[in-house]
Amino acid sequence: MLSLLSMSKFRYLNNKGLTLIELLAVIVILSIIILLAIPSISAIMDKMNAEVCNYNRMELEKSYELHLTVESLEHQEILFMEHLFKFHTSICPVNGVITFKDGHVLCSVHSDQELDEDQMKRCLIYK
């Protein structure tokens, strides 16, 4: 004799699959979750790229200032571009134009200060 509990298990095990409505409901719910997650993931990636760029610019600035001090040189655009070339790493993860202005390394994407067109043209040669 089968008890009621075993009968309900038997019915559940004989179920052949999900109905079309159930599948559509699952797909809609997953789509909504994905649509909500994409903007937050994008914002996190943008923030991380900015932090990487800021850190790399600080390291380049320290390195360049040390190079100028050790070699007893004054800042010149060509010296900075040569030093940037020797740095052997991409400073900005989104390929912003890197330049040196007023004692600071700037990025065309992540810096607060704007680069003028002449600086942009000179820097594009070294990209």
Rank of each mutant, 00 (worst) to 15 (best):
T89K: 15
L36K: 07
D46F: 11
D112P: 02
I98V: 08
Y55W: 10
T69V: 05
E65S: 11
L124P: 00
R122M: 13
P93Q: 07
E65N: 13
I27S: 10
E71F: 08
N49T: 10
D102H: 12
G17Y: 03
F87E: 04
I91N: 00
K16W: 00
K127V: 15
C53R: 00
F10L: 13
I125K: 07
F85R: 07
N54D: 03
D102L: 06
T19F: 05
K62Y: 15
D118L: 14
C107T: 01
C53V: 00
L124D: 01
T69D: 06
D46L: 08
H88Y: 09
L30F: 14
C53H: 00
E71P: 08
V94L: 14
E22R: 08
I38P: 02
S3Y: 08
H104E: 15
V109M: 06
L68W: 03
I91H: 02
G17R: 02
M1R: 08
E74F: 15
F80L: 06
M120L: 15
I27W: 09
A37L: 12
H67D: 07
L36A: 15
N15D: 13
K101R: 09
I78V: 05
L79G: 01
M58C: 13
V52G: 02
A25F: 03
N49R: 09
S3F: 12
Q76F: 07
H88T: 02
I44S: 04
L18G: 00
S6D: 04
S63H: 10
L36E: 14
E74I: 09
D112K: 15
K121F: 13
L60G: 04
V26H: 04
H67K: 06
F80C: 06
D102Q: 14
K86D: 15
K9H: 13
F85V: 03
A25G: 02
Q76P: 01
F87C: 01
N56M: 04
G103T: 05
L124S: 04
K127F: 09
L23W: 12
N15W: 09
E51H: 10
H67W: 11
V26R: 06
I21K: 15
F10V: 03
V70Y: 05
A25P: 00
K121C: 07
L4D: 10
C107N: 00
S42G: 11
H67R: 05
E114Y: 12
S3L: 12
K101D: 01
Y12H: 10
N56Q: 06
L20A: 03
I98G: 00
L124Y: 02
E117N: 11
T69R: 09
D102W: 06
S6W: 05
I78A: 05
Y126H: 08
E51Y: 11
I98E: 01
L36I: 15
V52D: 01
F80H: 05
Q113T: 03
M120N: 11
L30T: 04
S72C: 08
M7G: 04
P39Q: 12
I21G: 03
M81N: 05
Y126C: 04
S31F: 12
I32V: 14
I33C: 07
I34D: 11
H83F: 14
V105W: 02
P93E: 00
N54K: 13
E65Q: 15
I41N: 09
V109S: 04
S40W: 10
T99I: 09
H83M: 03
I34A: 14
S111D: 02
K9A: 06
T99M: 00
L35A: 12
L24K: 08
E74S: 15
V26L: 07
M48W: 13
L106S: 06
L73F: 06
E71I: 06
V52K: 03
